[in-house]
Design a protein around this nucleic acid. Structure first.
Lengths: 186, 186
DNA sequence: GCGTTTTTTTGACTTACGTCAAAAATGATG
DNA sequence: CATCATTTTTGACGTAAGTCAAAAAAACGC
């Protein structure tokens, strides 16, 4: 799924807008292990993963906590920083050699103003991310560590290949040790 | 803070749009204890609390879990149901005699289409609710029960008047018993 | 004001998961 | 392929908060 196709699934994208977006958007190739956003910096770009895998994480009490993964065909950004223009508390790291599209905040705002119909994309996307976050909160609060792991195993087995145990564990809200014990019992 | 003033803080609201919104919006008076949305029903309205206090809650394992409170000047809806048109898993209850403004989903969609600049309100509002939810998740995950209570005490003392202990407790992600013990130690 | 229901508190006990530490497995590098 | 670093597993023990149950306090209806 490429960027323009994704947008076309949400709104009609005119030829002019397509061209405009193509101009504003920059392709970026990153290597496995590369840090794309460092916490403390402002995250002023919206990324779209064309190929590869990204991880958003932060530190809590000196421990790395993975907040999200972005797989091919998904958006990625430090949402809080991107929206509020404040410094990011998250880091973004490439877990694989990846090809990204990069759209600066100011370009996006510009598009919003010049093509008001794009506000709809922003709204619909944000709504869908809200729903996902709500589901995540419910799952962290009311399901056991094992249920969350089993659920991920079913819903996103690809992730368990690309990311390592510690990343998955903190993403699921548990320690590495606990996840290892869960796996040991099949 | 009334509805129109709130909107005006986000975008310019033309006279025509104001009138339009006034026409589409219905005032609704509800009594303390009244159920406004029942889970299983679709929540097809966006509410704005002009006066009073609402509570959104759901059941998990036969236990009531308070998901949010909406105080004066705030919006309230079963977000998931409102966005997706699916049945709501939440209930909405008035914790006080309240005066609400009620805007139906279809009217809102209509406004979005006829006044594209309002998409911006939808987007900005959703963004701000996303950030709040993110903060909520972090707080549930990384702070102790006592820290969460102390924090609420500072940030929203009014809530501790209007709502009862059980509501507050499940909102903070703890049991009533635990919250009672926290309070006992000043 | 008195009895009934609802809400809050207190107590004894349980539990899922965390912590700390060390061993085993895996993988990268010259 | 031997070495060193990183990742995963295993073990012993700790703890914040949950559960169940019953008493105390507050709120409500008549």
């Amino acid at each position: 799924m490429d960027f323009i196709h994704y947008l076309e699934s949400v709104i009609k994208v005119s030829g002019i807008l397509k061209e405009e977006l193509h101009k504003l958007t920059k392709e970026r190739i990153v290597k496995k292990g590369q840090l794309i956003i460092r916490n403390g910096d402002r995250c002023a770009d919206l990324f779209f993963v064309e190929q590869g895998l990204l991880r958003g994480y932060y530190y809590n009490d000196d421990k790395e906590i993975t907040n999200w993964f972005a797989q091919e065909g998904e958006f990625a950004t430090c949402f809080y920083s991107f929206i509020s223009k404040a410094a990011s508390y998250e880091n973004i790291e490439a877990l694989d050699d990846s090809r990204l599209l990069q759209l600066p905040y100011c370009s996006l705002q510009d598009v919003y103003i010049r093509y008001p119909e794009t506000e709809r994309i922003g709204r619909v996307l944000t709504e869908s991310y809200y729903i996902k976050l709500e589901e995540r909160l419910l799952s962290l609060r009311f399901t056991t560590a094992k249920e969350r792991y089993d659920n991920l195993l079913v819903k996103n087995p690809a992730l368990l290949q690309g990311a390592q145990l510690g990343h998955i564990a903190s993403y699921l809200g548990i320690t590495q040790e606990t996840l290892s014990r869960i796996r040991a019992k099949h």
